[in-house]
Amino acid sequence: MGWIGETVDSIKSIKIRQLLTQAITLGMIVTSALIIWKTLMCVTGTESPVVVVLSESMEPGFQRGDVLFLHMTKEPIRAGEIVVFNVDGRDIPIVHRAIKVHERQNTGHVDVLTKGDNNDVDDIGLYADGQFWLHRQHIMGRAIGFLPYVGWMTIIMSEKPIVKYILIGALGLLVITSKD
């Protein structure tokens, strides 16, 4: 029988009361994760408080798999800041440095040009057709903090979904069969 047999036995021996307790525990874990995420959204003022670096365009400062913490305030964008922006027609936000800023008198309208530190040319080619500047509405936040390597798990999980299913399956099994 061995390990598999014991697992099957322990699944069979589950009582309804225990099952409910485990369902609630699982629910608590999921909701507290959600609470933390939503709280972060409120505190940082941006839709995605944490992003994972996916490209090499900011190397050697940011490498693939590094995690960035974002913050969005009303303070104006200035040259040198690393901003995360969305371009119309692109799904994935880009993390690059602002190299030129032109801010209008009175209205606060701002024209920003960005460039990846590791790229040879600025980002005009990445923007939508006929777009030469980023404006306030494109910018989701500025990077303020940095944690290396932590994002690799999400990269692996999004590129190899099988890993994700195995992981979720294993965790699920662990929750079902655990007795404390």
Partner: peptide, 21 residues
Amino acid sequence: QVFAFVAAEYETPKNSLNQVS
């Protein structure tokens, strides 16, 4: 690492701030 840059900064009648790296 340290990223350093030199920017020209000035004001014009149209723009309250121009920063050109």
